[in-house]
Amino acid sequence: MGKTVAHISFYTPWERKRIARIVFALLLGALVWSFFSNTLLHQLQKPVIKFPYVDPTYWIMHYLGIPELITGNFVMACTFDTALFASCILSFMYPEKRLYCWSFIILYFIYFITFNTFGTHHTNHKIGFLFIAIPFTVADYKSFNFLWQGLRYFLLFAYADAFLWKLFRLSWLHPDQGLLIMKKNVAAFLYFEPNTLQAGLYRWSLQHPAWVNGAYLVGMLLEGLFIVGFFTRKFDHYLFILSILLPVGFYLMADANFFEFLILNLTLINFHKLFVRAQ
């Protein structure tokens, strides 16, 4: 891993507390968003079809009957959701109390698995919500800083890995790869929303496939740029902007939601400067 850590000035316990408040406020906002999305566990109406696929973690969860137990009983599901909100609020109010952070992580892990399995697709974008809380589970501020940096590497890895998969699978050489991805993912949108501006953009793209295929290649190269972050922190503010642009591209080109992963962008921010300016 990069030599960049030598240049890190560690966040102080005071700064850690403020970062925790920002993180848990965002997490609380995400939970409220889930409420309005009708995807909290008590709102799932006792789902029946599951999708553990070939992920042993999901198999274990279903073997233990945890997703079924919680969603199968309305009172249990309400209790679970209340506990999830409470752990998040308490972590926001008392960031130094690690028990609340641990509680949130365990509960959010169960929520993550249950949401994905009954949604019948393993979405990864919510993993940022789970991982971002981990650094706050340690007592000493130095370990917190190392875990926070570890999360930064995790973010860099996710994008760099996406680049490497495309590179080695040679999908960038595949004719019309970008266009075919778009066609597959926006068919329902064009059917249900044919008169919108976005549908107009897709129809224009069908007539100009070079732009869509070019956008796929540009997106791939932008993902590759995250490798730079392993060696230097100098370009973190550019990577921050890129990691906002890429989910916008995924959304427009493939109707894919990757916005929740943005929470890991916090690891690219220099909070020293931010807090000094705020003071």
């Binding site: 973690t57 990864n124 890995d161 998969w165 699978r169 999908s171 595949h174 019309d176 068919a187």
Partner: peptide, 23 residues
């Protein structure tokens, strides 16, 4: 992929041309 050890291979699979799409 075994949660939480993720594989970030999204959109890396070569897309096959499709005659008809289902909605």
């Amino acid at each position: 992929e075994v949660t939480p050890f993720f594989v970030w291979g999204m959109y890396s699979e070569k897309e096959k041309p499709v005659q008809q799409y289902e909605i």
